[in-house]
Amino acid sequence: MGEAIVITSGKGGVGKTTTAANLGTALALQGKKICLVDTDIGLRNLDVILGLENRIIYDLVDVIEGRCKIHQALIKDKRVDEKLFLLPAAQTTDKNAVNPEQMKSLVEELKRDYDYVLIDCPAGIEQGYRNAVAGADHAIVVTTPEISAVRDADRIIGLLEQEEITAPKLIINRIRQHMMRSGDTLDVNEITTHLSIDLLGIIVDSEGVISSSNKGEPVVMDPTNKASLGYRNIARRILGESVPLMSIEDEHRGVFSKLKALFSR
């Protein structure tokens, strides 16, 4: 019996879907069997980021309304052999097509076959949020070092604390190292003490995340990227390893190391 983890944030555009795609891939690379569930019905994105858009035949609403079996709607990601599956959201209807009870039984069914079921939650605190949280055992809250995202994270944590799930964990996404160093954004410590929940990991801002998402390939596939390292660390922490928090300092490279890097290409 696996575990279901909902990835949520309250605010839109902080990187829930990217986090879901990358954590799913990272956990699959660690050898776990993963099912990603996109609950953003009407505004689905997870399939695009994973580059699986063109393989959708059936979707979540088809499964819930009994038009197909679960295994018919699941899409296998061929890059991570037999380990990563996606249940895409429907695009033609809206969030009210599904209710929390139905989501709960769907997630229960998926948990039987998978080690982790990652549920990508839509922005907001309405029907879509309630559906996404219904079947979850754990929750991950994604925020960015912006005051508006932190406010919404605070609100969503308050709501999550009323659900029957374990205490939510925090991911701080899109950290701009130089801005945080100069004090122009909230720093990691400030955010964690303000929200007073456990920090699961931090992800530094990287252009690689955008370019790889556009190519339909999660950034974790690139082991040299710093954001990818952040996601891999989080995946290891989810599996119970204790991994130290990466430092947000860029390597201040001197002239010699730059030269060395130039020649060692």
Binding site: R151, D152, D154, R155, I157, G158, L159, E161, H194, S196
Partner: peptide, 26 residues
């Protein structure tokens, strides 16, 4: 005991003691 978070309202007919922060919009 705990944090009063954004959007939460804590009511009491008498005195109230909060051991924890009251966050903005709480």
């Amino acid at each position: 005991l705990g944090v009063v978070r954004s959007g939460q309202i804590l009511r009491s007919p008498g005195d109230i003691i909060i051991v924890g922060n009251v966050n903005p919009n709480g």
